[in-house]
């Protein structure tokens, strides 16, 4: 099985407090710690496990700049066989559709049976996988938490729906799936493992290599644009308890007692 996994480099929200920059045009990007989108680690782990069961190879692909290469190496350290970086000045400011179109062009250069994306990334959009499938005219299922390879023509997929129930599906290959967290336990990779991939060759493909016209991607190809970033008015919000730890705990115990929170 030839598997392609799409990965995105994102600011790590568990490591950073995200703030809006001074003129509201972007978030404050200095000193941000970046990592692989949480969902994508699950996708790469799943691809590796499938490959180990049925043979084949795992390729990771990302659209980004030179700095994005580090996340490709990280996922290769997890066990992906190959990595590709799709990078070009004209790709900048692409919207989700632009990103999907760029990846589609790369897919057309290879021969894949299965493409995995994360269910969503830092924008909470969850768009690239479904768009890519529609562009390729391949079947799609979002939010997969179970994949069983039946044979080389089809797979069984469980989609996690409301209430944590699983919608069981049979899907023809090739197809695109978006992966939901919890499908597996992604393996840990340390600095040492990542260093081992330092010499691995990671080809970089630009618009020319992919046969993409500059107007179809980047800002000119985007139907949706961010105007500004802001922090919404706090509104009512919680009453924040102030004081020493002791005082706060004391107050909280009283409040809880009054509300029946202590039996």
């Amino acid at each position: 099985m030839e598997i392609l996994v799409c990965i995105k480099r994102v600011p790590d929200t568990s490591e950073n407090e995200i703030n809006v920059n001074r003129d509201g045009t972007d978030i404050e990007r200095d000193d941000l710690v970046y990592s692989v989108n949480e969902w994508d680690n699950y996708a790469v782990e799943e691809a590796i496990q499938i490959r180990d069961r049925v043979c084949g190879s795992v390729t990771v692909v990302t659209v980004g700049d030179e700095e994005t290469e580090e996340v490709v190496r990280r996922e290769m350290a997890m066990g992906a066989d190959k990595g590709v970086l799709l990078s070009d000045e004209v790709f900048k400011n692409s919207d989700g559709r632009g990103i999907a179109g760029i990846i589609k062009a790369e897919v057309k250069k290879g021969k894949y049976d299965l493409i995995l994306t994360g269910a969503q990334a830092d924008d909470g959009a969850g768009q690239v996988g479904g768009m890519l499938a529609a562009m390729l005219d391949w079947p799609y299922a979002s939010l997969a938490t179970l994949i069983e390879v039946t044979d080389d023509k089809k797979i069984k997929v469980g989609r996690e729906i409301e209430g944590g129930n699983l919608e069981m599906l049979e899907i023809d290959l090739p197809c695109v799936l978006s992966i939901q967290t919890g499908i597996n336990e992604p393996r840990y990779v340390g600095i040492r493992g990542i260093r081992k991939t330092a010499s691995a060759e990671i080809p970089v493909h630009g618009a020319g290599d992919l046969g993409l016209s500059p107007e179809s991607v980047g800002k000119s190809g985007s139907k949706i644009k961010q105007l500004d970033y802001f922090v919404p008015d706090a509104g009512e919000g919680a009453e924040i308890l102030e004081g020493s730890v002791d005082e706060i705990a004391e107050k909280l115990v009283e409040l809880l007692k009054a509300r029946g929170g202590i039996k």
């Binding site: 989700g96 269910a119 969503q120 924008d123 959009a125 479904g130 529609a134 996690e160």
Partner: peptide, 23 residues
């Protein structure tokens, strides 16, 4: 923007050649 909408909508925007505004 629930588990059904997330399944349906991104691909629908491509098939309709329309903009997609998620969530």
């Amino acid at each position: 923007h629930d588990t059904f909408g997330m399944d349906l909508a991104p691909g629908l925007s491509i098939k309709l050649d329309a903009a997609y505004l998620p969530d």
